[in-house]
């Protein structure tokens, strides 16, 4: 009950600062059968910044992320994209407005070639998605743009390979190229380095830095070294609530954060 009242003043604050923030979550609450996975979370992602969402296992990071990406609907609270309430819109509609997510497991199309993977995303704005009577020549003009994007993530030489045959790191790169094809204003990345070997983490971190230029990025991440040298701002969650927020220095010196990470929870 208390959380419902808390959402109201937060809303007033957020609407006053729409201009500076690309994505805002106000009083987000998600209840699963009586258990509140996320409780009254306020989160504002500054335009053009790289923002991280971290926390111990079970802190509600993924739930929070899924609320922002519209994979789940909030029990309470609302989500603003550029000041517009998107809480009730569907995933596809939100994507068309410039908010695009990636997935923890590599979200690629395994039986399509690398070039086709990117071309699928390019078709979204090209408007040929339902053209079943035309030959593939109709989408040939997209090939150049697709190759540019593959070049950008460094896998253009694999353009003809079936995506399933790529290495893990290259699959992540392909996924990022596919996401970039939508020219998203806001990119939400779900644990971009999850399950990666050391040799893959550095290139992917660099890649995120490169593609984040001119965009707003929110990422959920486990790997603290990635967070420390990539992110402008960090929100720490614990037990479904915001524990601390600030730069890496501020957050890493916060006693409560140290306690949450070191004390008891094996993270």
């Amino acid at each position: 009950m208390a959380s419902m009242e808390a959402a109201v003043p937060a809303g007033a604050v957020a609407s006053a600062i729409d201009q500076d923030y690309a994505l805002v979550g106000e009083g987000l609450t998600k209840v699963f059968g009586g258990f509140a996975a996320v409780k009254d979370v306020n989160l504002a992602v500054r335009r053009g910044s790289i923002h991280a969402l971290i926390g111990p296992n079970g802190a509600g990071k993924t739930t929070c992320f899924n609320l922002l990406t519209k994979t789940l609907s909030p029990t309470k609270g609302r989500i603003l994209l550029n000041g517009v309430d998107i809480s009730r819109l569907r995933t596809a509609e939100v994507a068309r407005r410039g908010l695009v997510r990636s997935f923890q497991i590599s979200a690629i199309f395994p039986n399509l070639t690398v070039l086709e993977n990117v071309r699928v995303a390019l078709q979204a704005s090209y408007g040929t998605g339902y053209h079943f009577w035309r030959s593939l020549r109709a989408v040939a003009p997209l090939n150049r743009r697709a190759e540019e994007l593959l070049e950008q993530v460094g896998i253009v030489e694999s353009r003809g390979t079936t995506a399933a045959e790529l290495s893990y790191g290259k699959k992540r790169a392909l996924e990022i190229a596919t996401t970039l094809a939508l020219e998203p204003e806001v990119m939400l990345l779900d644990e971009p380095t999850a399950g990666m070997g050391h040799e893959d983490v550095e290139p992917i971190t660099e890649l995120i830095r490169k593609v984040a230029v001119g965009r707003t990025v929110l990422l959920v991440e486990h790997n603290l070294s990635v967070v420390s040298n990539l992110c402008d701002r960090i929100t720490v969650l614990q037990h479904g609530e915001v524990l601390a927020e600030g730069t890496y220095e501020q957050v890493s010196n916060d006693e409560r954060v140290v306690e949450a990470y070191m004390g008891g929870v094996d993270e």
């Binding site: 199309f109 039986n111 399509l112 086709e116 993977n117 071309r119 699928v120 078709q123 040929t128 998605g129 339902y130 053209h131 079943f132 009577w133 035309r134 030959s135 593939l136 109709a138 989408v139």
Partner: peptide
């Protein structure tokens, strides 16, 4: 077709 590509996706 362009549509077939999306369908397979």
């Amino acid at each position: 077709s362009p549509y077939g590509e999306i369908l397979k996706a």
